[in-house]
Design a binder for these strands. Structure first.
Lengths: 133, 133
DNA sequence: AATAAACTAGTAATAATTACTGTTATTATA
DNA sequence: TATAATAACAGTAATTATTACTAGTTTATT
């Protein structure tokens, strides 16, 4: 029922998220949007990030290290986190086959309903790898 | 170097974790161990959970909903979370094959190092399924 | 038993997120 | 275009999960 009204701040947050290949945290979004709207509040950022996620315009990426990142690319795709620098990186391959196989395997002898799965990769990112060698 | 000393509290926490099929949160561990050690402090629970995880005696399970659970079963095995009640459940199947296939696929055209991956399943747990139908 | 260091309880501090409140911006309508 | 209704905002306070600190207690060692 509740109508949705346009807002400059929300738009700025969306634009920023979509323009980014890295996966900013709420704090990072705040820091950036603040340049355009100096007195935007952190609450507004959180409220709108949640809004975007709920409306399928962004994905919430909770990581193993406890940090929460946001992704403007809503096409299903796997994520990778660097064990060293913590960066979240998109992996560009189609894991659909494996995903389906996994869902099937998981559903065997399981009385509940498997709706899907998320695979999270970890290791060393290209940059840290270069530095280290 | 630092020597490790035995402690009743830590032992109680480990025993409790291992005895559990569900995956208690720090708070749940606290609530339980408190029955035996009424003035154990929450800090002690956190410190020892971290200790157990660091020493390979427990696994930290950070979930999509932001909650953090702990698992006394350190054998690698996939987890499932119910979208309705939030329960974490162990899935009893061997996904090693798929896991390896995924790692291989992910490594293609990736300049970093893929060390591994964690697959997290979601859907409706057996109990919620029964209730709903 | 005496000693040293790890561990604890209790409390304070921090960090991330959510809730609240009075004001502002947006949209629908007159 | 002005008015009215309300979604969204800024600013702040509150909440939650977790970590840090400190003085006292346990544990292991001699």
């Amino acid at each position: 029922m509740a109508q949705i009204k346009h807002s400059r701040q929300r738009e700025a947050i969306r634009i920023f998220l979509m323009s980014r290949k890295d996966h900013p945290t709420a704090e990072a979004v705040y820091a950036h949007v603040k340049e355009e709207y100096p007195n935007i509040s952190l609450g507004t950022v959180y409220r709108n990030l949640t809004f975007l996620v709920d409306n399928g315009e962004a994905i919430k990426v909770p990581c193993d290290d406890g940090s929460v990142h946001f992704d403007g690319n809503v096409e299903p795709h796997p994520h990778f986190q660097c064990r060293k620098c913590g960066a979240i990186i998109d992996l560009d391959f189609d894991g659909t086959k494996c995903e389906n196989a996994l869902n099937k395997a998981a559903a065997t002898d399981f009385e509940g309903i498997i709706e899907g799965n998320v695979t999270f990769f970890y290791g060393i990112c290209p940059e840290c790898r270069r530095e280290n060698s």
